[in-house]
Design a protein around this nucleic acid. Structure first.
Lengths: 209, 209
DNA sequence: TGCAATATAGAACAAACGATCTAAAATGAA
DNA sequence: TTCATTTTAGATCGTTTGTTCTATATTGCA
């Protein structure tokens, strides 16, 4: 047949993700990309098409590696309410440890390019629905087994959780402050608690641990 | 002395805001800016310094015109809890009417350039604290007069409201969906309601209106 | 009415941009 | 071994970028 690729596609995609993540789409040049990916410009165009197509591949790869992995892992290992709490706490932890202020590539993309590119907007929108339906499954299941109160509809709680998730990521980009982020989610977790007043709950938690 | 300016500084700043808002910082060229502002490139550099300095002026002008105006208006005309509700509803309304998907220049900036420019990050962070302290004043005052429950600390509620505000703006950029945004804030408003179960509250509201 | 000072329009600058071309290298099937 | 096919590195394409220069116009003060 023909000469085979010399590079590992997944590895160079990871490098591309890192560049787009670090500088954003517009501020990343094709030369930066090729250098960091360790391939020549021509190879990049040959293998991925153009800059925009490479970005689309990178974003999809990122969503698979990062978000979908987290959803799978938490949903299969924890009871529904705990999965929600763990999800948000993991996001907070990542935001606080993010010394380079990368933020979240999904959120960054949702703002920088989704509004100017209908196809990418669809990808972002579809994935955001995917996250929301993870929250919805958790809330519905928690309301069934009695660990989450039914005062608010499962749909609205899932919507709120999506919004809070994105809000944390934006806020953390400018103010990576532990008190701020942990305080932000406290009232949300209270909404997921079974109608137990906050004071009694704190006392109960201290007793348990 | 010397020859006077031929353009109105506030007017050309508005045009600059529109360009940065529409395309983002990186994707807006100085030629685009000068054309839309109706001045020559040299005049732009003479009057504002460089592209980055013009952006800083634009952002500050935007924050004054849009956000600070809204905070002043609502805080002086409405009781605290209503001011919070009106603030979020106004953001939702703007997001749904935003045919050009401009989003919010503050949120866009917080993600595109704040992480790469320490001085602009400070401006964004300081303003975000300003918004949070508006929410804090409202919640504290509402908790005092009994219109907002004290189950959650005023600080945490203000933090949550900030996060929800940003979350709405990001979500709306990719999914400008009324059900999503209005559903998102419903549980938040419930947190601000005086421990009245949702069912009784809906009934009471129907009776009142 | 000069004169210093600033604003203007438009050309010009080097550098960087996304993308492509050229020619050599590497492969498996015939 | 030949050949069609693909990948590679590096030069190169025409644009566009942010910024500055040149030359002219316009002002208030002396």
């Amino acid at each position: 047949m023909a000469r085979p690729r010399e590079f590992d596609e997944a590895a160079v995609l990871d490098a591309a993700i890192r560049q787009f993540w670090l500088h954003g789409y517009e501020a990343t040049s094709v030369r930066d990309l090729a250098d960091e990916m360790g391939i020549a410009g021509a190879s990049l165009y040959n293998a991925f098409g153009d800059k925009r197509a490479l970005f689309e591949r990178s974003l999809n790869h990122y969503l698979d590696q990062t978000f979908r992995e987290r959803i799978r892992r938490l949903e299969h290992s924890l009871p529904p309410r705990d999965a929600i709490v763990a999800f948000l706490q993991e996001i907070i932890k990542r935001s606080l440890n993010d010394k380079q202020r990368l933020g979240c590539l999904l959120v960054n993309s949702a703002l920088e390019i989704a509004p100017h590119d209908e196809e990418l907007r669809q990808i972002v929108a579809t994935f955001l629905r995917e996250v929301e339906s993870f929250f919805l499954r958790c809330v519905t299941s928690g309301q069934h087994d009695g660990t989450i109160p039914k005062a608010q509809s499962a749909e609205d709680l899932a919507r709120l959780l999506s919004g809070v998730l994105l809000g944390i990521r934006v806020l953390a980009r400018a103010r990576p402050d532990r008190k701020l982020l942990e305080g932000l989610v406290r009232p949300v977790f209270a909404l997921l608690d079974n109608a137990v007043p906050a004071k009694r709950l704190r006392k109960a938690r201290r007793g348990a641990s």
